[in-house]
Design a protein around this nucleic acid. Sequence first.
RNA 1: GGGCCUGUAGCUCAGUUCGGUUAGAGCGCACGCCUGAUAAGCGUGAGGUCGAUGGUUCAAUUCCAUCCAGGCCCA
Length: 932
Amino acid sequence: MDYKKTLNLPKTDFPMKASLARREPDQLATWEQEDLYRKIRRLSKGRRRFILHDGPPYANGHIHIGTALNKILKDIIVRSRQMAGYDAVYVPGWDCHGLPIEHNVDKELGARKKDYSQAEFRRLCRRYAEKFIDIQRREFKRLGVMGEWDNPYLTMNYAYEAVIAKECARFAQNGSLYRSQKPIHWCCSCRTALAEAEIEYHDESSPSIFVRFALCDDVGGQVPELAGKKVSVAIWTTTPWTIPANLAVALHPEFSYAAVQTGHAEVLILASDLVAACMQKFGVSDYRILAEFEARVLEGQKCRHPLYGRDSTIILANHVTLDAGTGCVHTAPGHGREDYEVGLKYGLEPFSPVDENGCFTPEIPDLRGQFVFAANSGIIDKLEDAGALLARENIDHAYPHCWRCKKPVIFRATPQWFISMDKTGLRRQALAEIDQVTWVPRWGRERIYGMIENRPDWCVSRQRAWGVPIAVFYCRSCGRIHINEEIVAHIHALFTAHGADIWFEKSVADLLPAGAVCEHCGGRTFVKEDDILDVWFDSGVSHAAVLEARDELRWPADLYLEGSDQHRGWFHSSLLTAVGTRHKAPYKAVLTHGYVVDAEGKKMSKSMGNVIAPGKVIERYGAEILRLWVSASDYRDDIHISENILKQLSDAYRRIRNTCRFMLGNLKDFDPGRNRVDYRQMPEIDRFALHRLQELIDRIRGAYERYDLHIIYHALFNFCTVDLSAFYLDVLKDRLYTSASGDAHRRSAQTTMYHLLDAMVRMMAPVLPFTAEEIWRYMPDDGAREESVHMAMLPEANPAWRDAVLAENWNLLLAVRREVTRALEDARARKIIGHSLDAHVDLTADGDLYTKLSPYADQLRAIFITSGAGLVRGAPAEKEDENNATEGLSVRVAAAAGEKCARCWVHDTSVGRDAAHPAVCSRCRRVLAEIG
RNA sequence: GGGCCUGUAGCUCAGUUCGGUUAGAGCGCACGCCUGAUAAGCGUGAGGUCGAUGGUUCAAUUCCAUCCAGGCCCA
C-alpha cells in the first residue's frame, strides 16, 4: 500500500519561483485597477497623520540607484507608519526649474535658439520637465512606491510659482533681501554670467608675475628687526589684469613668515617655507633672513598699491597655500570667489572696474577700454617701470573657459540679490531651531549646525531664463525695493493664474499700479528685476507651497528624508525659508542616508564604469530585491551594492518566500474560523513558537518606530531560518504529515503557523509589498481579513502569549538539541546513520539538568527528529567532546531499534506487529484506523 | 586643505553606551545527510591580529592621538 497518500503533505498553488520581474508589473496593474491607493486613503480618514514630505528630485534623466534608494526608504517608512495606524499621505514632488533643463533645451535648439522668445523658450523647458516627470514617475511606481502619483507637486505649477514669489517677497518685506555686488564667472564674448556647470577647464598658458607691495609704515613696533627698513610684501598672481583691482594682500594666519634682506638694501616678506624657491626665481643668491614671525603681527598694516598709490591692506585668510607663489596672496575682492569671501570679513568692496565686454571702465583711466587679457602685458610693463616687478614667467595651468564659445572666462562683480543671515537674526533663529529637530542619525545636527553657523549671506539671484523671477521692483534712483501687501497679493494672483511667465511678458507699467512713489526717495520710476531665483529657493519653500497648501498635509512635516548632501541643500534651504518667514523649522525630524557606492566603497561614476542602474536590477531580479537591498543595508553609512550582494539578497528572498510557501502549503486544509485551537490547549513547542513571535514583533515594531530599518530584514530573515525552518517547522513535519487532518495537535500546529504567517506577512509588507500581497491572497480566510495586506495593520504583540519560564526551558532544550545534532553528525560520519530518524539518542544528564529535562522526556525524540531518545540521570561521560557547551550532558547515538515505518519513517519495534499493515508502526496504525 | 561621518569574518549586519570571560548571527563556501518544503529542506565545519601604528591603563575592538582607506559637503 502507498501510505504516502494517507499523509497530509503540504500543497499549495503559491509558486515557489517568484518571477518578480514578470509578476510585479501585473500586481501593480491589479492594485491600480482595484484603486487600492484610494481605498487606503478612505480607510485611514480621521486617523492621526504622519507626513513624510518628499524632497523633489530634479526632473531630468532617468532615476539612478541613489534615487531608487531614497524613494524606497521613504516608501518603507510611509507604508510602515500607515500600517502602524497613521494616515500617512505621501505626496511626491519634482524640482522643475534650473540650469540643467535650460542647458539641455539650449543644446537641443542649437543655433535656432535666437529664433525663440524667452516665453517660448520657457515653454520648451516646461515641456522638457514634463517629459522626464512622466519617465521618472513610471520608474518610481515600478519600484513599488505608493503615493499621490496622480497629483504630485511640481515646482513649476502656477500655484507653486506664485508661492515662490510670495515667499521671496516676505524676505523683501522683512528687510533681509538686499542687492549687492558679487563676483561671478563671466564670459566676455557671450556677455553673460555662467554657472559652475557651464564652465570647462582647459590648460592654458598665463603670465605668472611676482610683485612687491611696499609697506606704508615702519613695522619696527611689530618686528623689531625691521625698524627703519624699507619693507615690501612679495605677492604672486597669474592674472596681472586684476592688479588694478587689488585691495588687499592675504596671509595665512597659521603660517610662519620671513623678512628677507636681499642685496638691494630692501626687505621682502614672504612665507618662510617658500623663501629659497622664491629667491631663486627672483635671481637673488645673496640673502639673509632677518626675522621670522606669525602673519597676525602684520594684520591690518597698509601697503601701497604699486600702480595707483592707494592702500592695500594686509589681511589673514585660510585659503592661502604654500603650493605656489609666496604665501602672500594678491586679493581683488571683485575678481575672485575667495577674495570676495575674505573681503566680506574685512569690509572690502568687491571692486571690479571691468565692463560686460571685459574691458576696463573709466575707473582705471590709464587702461580704460582695454580688454583685460590684452591689458596683461601693458600692466606688467607698468609694474616693471614702477620697480615693483620681482619676476615674471609663463605657466601652464587649467583655466576656466565658457562651455559655449570656448573662450577664457573671468570673475567679475555684478549686482546680485542676497538674503541676509544676520540682519533679521535669521542665522541665530535657524541655529536655535536646529535643536528643536530630531536628527537621524544624531550627527546630522553637527553637520547642518556648522554649515548654518559659517555660511555667508544667501545669494539667491541667477541670471538665467528657466526659473521664477525675483518678483520685486526697485527704485531707479535710490535702488531700494518698492513693496507692499497690495503688490505682493497682486503678483501672487497673477502668477497663480498665468504662471511666472507673465513677469517676463509684462512691463513695469502693466505690473505695478500707476502712480507708485518710492517711499525712500520719492522716485517715480521703478525697475522690474528679471533675475530668477536660485532653485534651492524653489524647493526650499515646498513646506509653504505643499504642506501648507494641501488639506491632507500638515505643517511642519513629521519627517524629511534625503541623502547627506542635503544638509547643504534642501534641509538647509527649507530651514532658512521657513525660519525666515515663520520662525520655525518646517520639519520635526530629518533623516539622512548615505550614498550608494560599489563593492570597494568607491563612489559610482560613469568614468569608473561601476554604475549599477536600477532598471537593470529590476529587469534581472525584480524591484523587491532592490527593496530588500535597501532594507538590509544600514542607510546611515554609505551603502554598498554589487552583483554579489544582489545575489545574496535574492537567495535570502527565496528563503523567506519558501518558508512562507511551506506554511501556506500546510494551511491548505485549515479554516481559521473553525479549526483554530485555543492558546491554552496548545503543546508547549507551539506556545514557544508564539513566544518567539512576540519577541520578533516587538523587535520589528520597535525598529520601524526608530527607523532602524535594517534590523527588520535581519530579524525577519533570521526568524525564518533559525527559528522556523531549522527548528520549529522541521520538528512540526511529523505532526503535520502523519496525524489525521483534524487531529487537535495538528490543528494547533496550523493555528500557530497561521499566526506566524499572518504576523510575518504584515511585518514584511512595507519592505516587500508585492510578495506580502501575494502571500496574503493565498492565506486561509477567516472572514475578517482586509482584501489587501496594505489595508491591514502591523501585528500587535500579545502579552498573553509571552511566557518567560517556558522560553527558558525551551532555550535549554535548543541548547541540548545542538549537542544532539553534533552527535548525530558524528554518527553519520561513522556510517551509523543517514537520516536522523535512523538514530536513537541517549542523554545522560547530571542532577540539575536532568531535573529540567525530565518533564520533556517524552517529547525529546520529536524535538530531535530521531526515532527514539532516552534520558537518564547520571554523571556525564568523562572526556566528552571538549566543545560540549551544555554543562553536565553527554550524548550517545545508536542505530534506532525496530523497523522503519513505511508511513512516518520512524523506526519502531511495533512495525510488523499488525497483520493488516505490517509495514506500519502502531502510532500510524491508529491514525489509519481513525481516518478509515 | 577644512567640516561631518565610516572602517568588526568573502558578503550583509549584531556587539563595544559605563574598557574586563574563548568577538556573535545569517548568508556564501567546504563536506555530509535527505529525497514527503525538492530548481527545496536538514546538519557539521573552516573563516576575524574588530583598518594601521603609537599612547593611557593591571587590562583596549571599545578611550586618546596620528596615519591609511572611503563617503558627503565646502575650499
